[in-house]
Design a protein around this nucleic acid. Structure first.
Lengths: 225, 225
DNA sequence: CGCCGACTTGACATTAATCAAATGTAGTGG
DNA sequence: CCACTACATTTGATTAATGTCAAGTCGGCG
């Protein structure tokens, strides 16, 4: 099976909705956004895949890509031809089994996203979003407390179903509550527990000024690459 | 491969979250709801599977069920042992291919749901929900315009992230706009086009009283089985 | 007949969107 | 290197949408 690497520059499109499906992509490094365009012409961001995530799975059913993918920064992917893969997996039970698992995870992940979008209010959604990012960085061996947002406020809002203004105000509120520090796109979570409490809705009447202990602010230029 | 049938009575649980995954289920007839319980103990309904939908796919990744499934009415499913299936699919490329498609569809479906939940407002969400139901009934050979809601208002609201009260008021609004008639749980869509326009957000300033032409109200007891 | 749960309706409070404007930041070309 | 433009972000004032609380109605069922 021929697996090739492909560089994708910032703002470059990896694949586009309705394009015939031939290739899956595993992210080697970098960040992406996946989105769809609804009938009204508006974009809806569906997720922010990063290193080790697999792209293009939603095309397996309809044989055409159901979403578009654009790089948020200069990135690199492995291109895996699907037909080759499918043949090979028939001979390699362990590969097939593993692939089923990947697909299964894709489903569970989407369902979790629905949970977030559906019931939660703005503050909760955003907190859940940050906790999710934090967890994913931890899974990948990066700091769960200090990371850089690769997406704009607008993209966050679009993803969460909020306006840019709301996103901005929520960041301010989190800062005031002593949950995080933020400089441009550099995030420093100072109260992970409080953040999770918010995300899970266990927010009981808010003890106003507590847990302030001020770790140093993140340098503006920190990167993960 | 041993495929068995299983009856599931109204309110009976087909499987439960965290249960080890062994079996997939294809719905033969009937309606179900799938849901999760968040950390706060609240239920979030993830979908309303019906005839020919496949249940339990979200367990393939983690090998444990990620959601619970309960029947909304007396129903029947085919139980398909997953390990048997996995072995068999290795020998039958067409089966494997088909299964990939089913999984792919599950992913796209979930993403569509996210689109609905994320950006839309209450009216739009609910319209999209009804249009979706309508389409699914059409796909299955039933009337897309007259059908019975198997779920309570509360369950609809839970699924869409709205309160029961909002659901109730929205139904009233739809009635007043001449989009549908409703008697208890019997729905009669009288303006499918208008409904779709609402769902897709192409609602331009609402011409107030038009398209009223009053088709006969649905009998209260219509069923699809 | 009367209870109970599902649903509707109304008044009010709260949330988040909208509109509008100011401020900051990153590039770009001189 | 700096001025300048375009864009991203913040902030403020206001409005519309939706949740919350509280009755009340409807229908099914024992």
């Amino acid at each position: 099976m021929i697996i090739t690497r492909r560089r994708v520059l910032r703002d470059e499109q990896l694949f586009c909705v309705d394009e015939p499906f031939q290739t899956m992509y595993a992210v080697r490094f970098g960040h992406f956004k996946t989105f769809r365009v609804n009938l009204n012409g508006e974009r809806q961001i569906l997720g922010f895949p990063m290193t080790s995530d697999v792209l293009g799975l939603d095309a397996i059913g309809p044989a055409r890509h159901a979403s578009s993918v654009v790089a948020l920064e200069n990135s690199e992917v492995c291109a895996i031809p699907f037909t080759h893969f499918e043949q090979l997996s028939a001979d390699l039970p362990s590969l097939q089994h593993h692939f089923y698992r990947v697909l299964g995870h894709a489903i569970t992940r989407d369902q979790s996203a629905m949970l977030v979008m559906g019931k939660m209010r703005a503050e909760q959604k955003f907190a859940a979003f940050l906790v999710n990012l934090s967890t994913r960085y931890a899974d990948r061996g990066y700091s769960p407390l200090r990371f850089r947002l690769r997406m704009s406020r607008e993209e966050i809002g679009n993803y969460l179903g909020l306006t840019v203004e709301s996103v901005s105000r929520l960041l301010l509120r989190f800062k005031q509550k002593g949950l995080l520090r933020i400089d441009h796109r550099g995030v420093n979570i100072t109260d992970r527990a409080g953040m999770e409490a918010l995300a899970t809705g266990q927010t009981t009447a808010e003890p106003i000024a507590s847990r302030v202990h001020k770790p140093p602010l993140v340098a503006a230029d920190h990167q993960f690459k």
